[in-house]
Design a protein around this nucleic acid. Structure first.
Length: 600
RNA sequence: GCGCCCGUAGCUCAGCCGGACAGAGCAGCUGCCUUCUAAGCAGCCGGUCGGGGGUUCGAAUCCCUCCGGGCGCGCCA
């Protein structure tokens, strides 16, 4: 971080690698911290300057209040002393004390303009690389093979992908990990069904297009034909025993299912590839070692015939200790065994510093226990973070789990096509961009429909349940994907009208009008918003930020004519602001994985 | 029964590592298109932040408790 300067000016020889630290809150934080140390000594270097946005100024520092307690002095006096020690003349008008001891800052217009100009020259748009780059394993999506993804998987997929992108943007090494369900008892059934219908049959091809139909057919046979069920169970034994013929069929099943996954992820604009798939089967031959280690460490005991670990602090229904069953009484392994092996693999082989599980909140207890056992076993050394980033349930408008009218989970494919159809309907109805030909309109409808669905998943806190509502999702008002897309389309339209390339604007920003100033100031915080997502794994914070940007832009758009602006310097400045806004919005939406059509 | 999460405007949700005013969108009501896409903008209306205690100079934010809801709780994943 040392090579980074606040002013956006180049340091020494590195002029070609200009770096900025434009975020006003960070700049003020550093300055106020400096004043605290200068006034009260380095013993208070740990004191948080508490920079917050303010209703009475651009920002306020609340540091004086807690300092008053530590120093045993009046807060307003502390604030006054801090102001005396503060060196902010270059960025702010004279700070003032108000209320019980708040220090108010009103940033200088020329500073804001200068910082914005710096951002425009910065390829990273103010995103600051993490001081200590980490290897982060991000587990997300993780659907069951040969079963259609449902909206819960959809949300994990979308949110997890955004988190992964944000982590990479700040310089972490991200290992995407699609922990698919590709092993276990259901595969006996699926393999037998594949044999029955024929490997090259039309029914088998369903695996590529509509895996749920294939699964349901197998399920029906399993439930209604005892002979089929018996064969299926035998097949599971062969599968787990490594029978070559069975493994060949399993591999084929997997291949076809992956085609389905690939297509789904492509439609969703999700970055997961085949290389990211490390399903449950991947850990199969590590399971005996996992169990042996737990036994060797004296953590595993037999209880009711099953091998169990009882991590402290977990109790069940009757107040009895709750087990993590690592080997069933039939000596088979289960998902706990697999998840434990996964922990070890991520630490030992992937060398992760942090592992995030973007997984449904209903697995909270399970994962907490897996982490507890892993720590007990010493598999997760201190300093390595394993976290469950919970995904809340998706509800229908009636407030219950989202289902079809028939009571089944809504298939993902129909969900996506409905979104695209609805988007197309609205585009037609409203008379979308007359410049676009029908083919482009199709592409726009897809971007808008998919973008709306994804943004809806991203914009609300990931761990809270949310109501899936088409009408609120695909609308062009409020904190929605289409609203943000529309803002970018309007900006591009300006440049098209002017016959200019937005990448070619001169970074001659200036802020005079209130709308210009508010927009420019907000744009400076882009990097901070991205860093926050990487730290908290909460993409909805970036959504909120981008919505603010888009809202401030539309206000600017209404109040400040760009192309008609006089004199030329004002026009230049506004074009620069437009270009910067466009870059921030497209970069931000890019990090969210929300597609951005050129026009709408 | 135990554990975890949640309860903020009529609706859907932000804010919650305590700090001056509780915000947004929708819905309702007013205005604004010879002017860069009105898919928009400006404004009004609307809240005992589930109830009650506590800690604090200060609580939507932290603690306790009660009420209401969700999820989970031994061999499915």
């Amino acid at each position: 971080m040392r090579a980074w300067v606040e002013t956006g000016q180049a340091v020494g020889r590195g002029a070609d690698r200009l770096k900025t630290m434009a975020d006003p809150q960070q700049v003020l934080r550093d300055r106020v911290r400096g004043a605290i140390v200068a006034s009260f000594g380095s013993g208070l270097a740990d004191a948080d300057p508490l920079i917050r946005s303010s209703a009475f100024a651009d920002f306020q520092a609340n540091a004086a209040l807690p300092l008053a307690k530590r120093l045993g002095r009046a807060p307003r006096d502390i604030a006054a002393e801090l102001i005396a020690a503060l060196d902010v003349a270059d960025i702010s008008s004279e700070p003032s004390v108000s209320g019980p001891g708040f220090i108010n800052f009103t940033l200088r217009d020329d500073w804001i303009a200068g910082q914005a100009a710096g951002l425009l020259r910065d390829d990273r748009l103010g995103i600051v690389p993490a001081e200590h780059p980490q290897t982060v394993v991000a587990e997300y999506s993780s659907p069951n093979i040969a079963k259609e993804m449902h909206v819960g998987h959809l949300r994990s997929t979308i949110v997890g992908d955004a988190i992964a992108r944000a982590l990479e943007a700040v310089g972490h090494h991200v290992v995407r990990d699609n922990h698919v369900g590709d092993w276990g008892t259901q595969f006996g059934m699926l393999i037998e069904h594949l044999l029955d219908v024929g490997e090259n049959s039309a029914e088998a091809a369903l695996l590529r297009t509509d895996p749920n139909a294939f699964y349901q057919a197998a399920r029906r046979a399993f439930d209604s034909e005892p002979a089929f069920a018996a064969r299926s169970r035998e097949r599971v034994v062969k599968l787990q025993g490594g029978d070559p013929a069975t493994l060949r069929l399993w591999t084929q099943l997997m291949g076809m299912s992956r085609e389905y996954l690939r297509r789904t992820y492509a439609t969703l604009r999700v970055t997961l590839t085949d290389d990211d798939v490390r399903g449950e089967s991947f850990y199969n031959d590590m399971l005996p070692g996992v169990v042996a280690d737990l036994e060797a460490k004296g953590l595993a005991v037999i209880s009711d015939g099953a091998l169990c670990v009882f991590p402290p602090g977990f109790t069940g229904r009757d107040g009895r200790p709750l087990p993590v069953i690592v080997r069933k009484s039939d000596r088979g392994y289960n998902y706990s065994s697999t998840d434990l092996a996964t922990v070890r693999y991520r630490v030992d082989k992937l060398n992760c510093d942090r592992a995030i599980y973007v997984v449904g909140s209903d697995q909270a207890l399970h994962l907490a226990m897996i982490f507890a056992v892993s720590r007990e076993a010493g598999w997760i050394p201190p300093g390595i973070v394993f976290e469950h980033d919970q995904i809340g349930m998706v509800l229908g408008t009636d407030g219950t789990r989202l289902r079809t009218r028939e009571g089944e989970a809504v298939p993902l494919s129909s969900l996506l096509s409905e979104g695209i159809e609805r988007a197309r309907g609205i585009l037609d109805e409203l008379g979308a961009s007359s410049e676009a030909d029908p083919g482009e309109l199709d592409a726009i409808a897809e971007d808008v429909g998919i973008g709306a669905i994804k943004y809806a998943d991203l914009s609300t806190a990931r761990d809270s349940a949310y109501v899936f509502d088409w009408d609120r999702m695909i609308t062009f008002r409020g904190n929605t994907g289409p609203y943000l897309q529309y803002a970018t389309a309007r900006i591009r339209s300006i440049f098209r009208k002017a016959g200019l390339d937005e990448r070619g604007v001169s970074p001659a920003t200036a802020v005079t009008a209130a709308a210009e100033r508010a927009l420019a100031l907000k744009l400076l915080a882009f990097g901070a918003a991205v860093s926050q997502v990487a730290e908290t794994a909460e993409p909805h914070r970036l959504c909120g930020y981008l919505f603010d940007v888009a809202s401030l832009f539309t206000t600017f758009y209404e109040e400040c004519p760009v192309l008609r602006a006089e004199p030329a310097s004002l026009r230049e400045a506004r074009l620069a602001l437009c270009a910067l806004t466009l870059r921030v919005l497209t970069a931000g939406l890019g990090l969210l994985g929300v597609p951005v059509p050129e026009r709408m």
